[in-house]
Amino acid sequence: MKGNYDKAFENVVRLRVMSILMVNEQFDFNSFKEILEVTDGNLASHLRYLENQGYVAVEKTFVGRKPQTNYSATASGKKAFQDHLDFLENLIKENKSH
């Protein structure tokens, strides 16, 4: 079977984070917090998980005097997510043909 079910995306917050990073070059911490409606701690731990997997890259900058943490998907993160998508799509196809 094509694709690969990735445990990293089993969690819905991480799945959503990665979906957003597939279509946005960069996304910052506060924007994630607003759109996902999760707490700081929860979001930070999931982002760290993805960072440790090598799926997202972190970049800290300053906007005026405020610190901003930007996230982007790495090449291996994009590939892992694409494999995960392929897996889901194949699963749906198989279910239909039975």
């Binding site: 819905v12 799945l15 959503r16 979906s19 957003i20 279509v23 759109i35 889901l88 799509e89 749906i92």
Partner: peptide, 8 residues
């Protein structure tokens, strides 16, 4: 998949 699409 619907979840992914809606987030995008």
């Amino acid at each position: 998949l619907a979840e992914i699409k809606s987030m995008m």
